[in-house]
Design a protein around this nucleic acid. Structure first.
Lengths: 195, 195
DNA sequence: ATCTGAAGACATCGATCGATGACCACCGGC
DNA sequence: GCCGGTGGTCATCGATCGATGTCTTCAGAT
């Protein structure tokens, strides 16, 4: 938190090491997911000995939880059907990577503790705002519609990051946002289009 | 290929072992993905020694490719905007699991050979029919729209299988199909709705 | 100057996984 | 009734990864 008044940067600083580990872990988890990220990679990127992960956090899983908590502070809940929110979230995800929250939605059987935390995170941030909106709009099956929209959004975000679809990966935000607004909005039922 | 005329079931039959391995591998890969499936699991489920995987196929990756080829024969390309096609595919995926084809769309960096084969499979089966349809309908950016629809569909299918979203996981096909038709169709642009 | 506890570096363990190769059992042909 | 080849079993290797424990180094109090 507080910068060190003594100049030159101190060499022995557990708080700083902790922070470096959390930052590196957040980036790597966001990029590769939980399983495919090794503690050795995290340590290397952070410039910190991987053994300190066990020392400071208790293990890889707890480090993940700590990183997820930090990430949660950065990304508030967002109603995907509000253009500026959608754009901001999409931009944030494009720069930072989708993170294990999204991957957890889509993959069976991550390490259970991390898995459940990530899914809860996702439900709070994405599904619940949509569900509340649909319920307020009087749409039936608000929960199902909200979940379908969130799942579709997750699919698009993850595919875009993974690079499986060339045009999607290369698409500009300005092209993607209106397209996604259409798609996600259609979860209410295009046929009757109550708006 | 040819069934054994000598009754009682033969005990030494490499063709049958191969087939059992492919079937078990297809199920497990579909359920857990490539990385999270071990050759030991495959062997156990198939009732065949895992060492035979290397013998008959050359390795886990080649076994995956063989299983994917079989799966490809079962699931022909499908235009997601045709209700019966969508329903059939959704039902097939619900029973069998999404398979690594879908997971590959969404995850960065599987084992490269398998990864690329799975993605190619997906592009042929899902994206191309949609792209052709959109192009025929005169919609601009047909490729991007087709990829967004495929990505969204992948997200829904994977989430449903993974069970992250309770209402989605519990939803009946009859409720899901019309909802998905709306969502995927909206990729053409709800606002101007050229239909 | 000395002592002490925290911070960090290093070696290594135990488990897992894919793959390999040696070995055994059976079947058909001569 | 030996014999060769095929199908199958088994022990084990090498690599990877998370975790643990020990040793060293340094900062600050006395």
């Amino acid at each position: 938190m507080t910068d060190e008044p003594a100049g030159g940067g101190r060499r022995r600083d557990s708080a700083r090491s902790r922070e470096l580990l959390i930052r590196a872990a957040g980036e790597l988890f966001a990029d590769r997911g939980f399983d495919r990220t090794t503690t050795r990679e995290i340590g290397e990127r952070a410039g910190v000995d991987p053994a300190l992960i066990a020392r400071y956090f208790g293990g890889k899983t707890q480090l993940y939880l700590a990183a997820a908590k930090v990430e949660q502070g950065e990304a508030p809940p967002a109603d995907l059907l509000v253009e500026e929110r959608l754009r901001w979230l999409l931009d944030w995800l494009t720069r930072r990577g989708p993170g294990p929250s999204f991957q957890s939605a889509v993959l069976p059987g991550d390490s259970t503790a991390a898995q459940e935390a990530a899914r809860e995170h996702l439900r709070e941030r994405l599904v619940e705002p949509l569900r509340a909106r649909f319920a307020a709009e009087g749409v039936d099956r608000a929960d199902l519609r909200a979940e379908v929209a969130a799942a579709a959004f997750a699919g698009v975000v993850l595919s875009r990051w993974a690079g499986a679809f060339p045009a999607l990966a290369a698409a500009e935000l300005d092209d993607l946002v209106p397209l996604l607004l259409d798609v996600l909005g259609a979860v209410r039922g295009t046929r009757q289009a109550d708006d």
